[in-house]
């Protein structure tokens, strides 16, 4: 693997674009096709690509498993958190209209936050499952 210069440089060139595409899919999901799941899976594919080229240890340094385990929970926490904040502000659970004074703005904000929660959980889970499978072989 040490001598595959083209592969290593090529991978390094590709990675930022994959990440930018994932973020585009995430935040443009309101206006075009896309959303939290797709973006999470694409971002996880970026880490998997990195791990395939540079080895599992390098990937684990770039994205430590401990951080991933925290992120798995954080996404669900963010999602339910939005619901509970909506409840505290006087709406029903997950009724985003209560988040802001203008119900339409509230809806938009709620959708954005919820999709972010989905992105975090899907990305962290997919990457953690990949680590678990690949790390099992040693």
């Amino acid at each position: 693997m040490k001598f595959d210069t083209i592969l290593r440089i090529g991978t390094k060139l590709f990675l930022p674009f994959i990440l930018v595409f994932a973020l585009y899919v995430q935040f443009h999901g309101d206006y075009g096709p896309g959303g939290g799941f797709q973006a999470g899976v694409i971002a996880a594919a970026m880490v998997i690509f990195y791990a395939i080229t540079f080895g599992l240890e390098a990937a684990k340094q770039a994205m430590p498993p401990l951080v991933l385990e925290v992120l798995i929970g954080l996404g669900v926490f963010l999602y339910t958190g939005v619901g509970i904040v909506a409840m505290l502000k006087g709406g029903e659970f997950l009724n985003y209209s209560a988040l802001k004074h203008d119900p339409v703005h509230g809806q938009h904000l709620g959708i954005l936050l919820v999709e972010l929660g989905v992105l975090i959980t899907v990305f962290a889970t997919m990457t953690a499952i990949f680590y678990a499978f690949v790390g099992r072989g040693r």
Partner: peptide, 20 residues
């Protein structure tokens, strides 16, 4: 179906882990 796909991959991953 979007929901179903994501739940599907979760099931498959769990099944593969059990196979291992």
């Amino acid at each position: 179906i979007l929901t179903a796909i994501v739940v599907g991959i979760a099931t498959i991953a769990l099944g593969l882990a059990l196979v291992v």
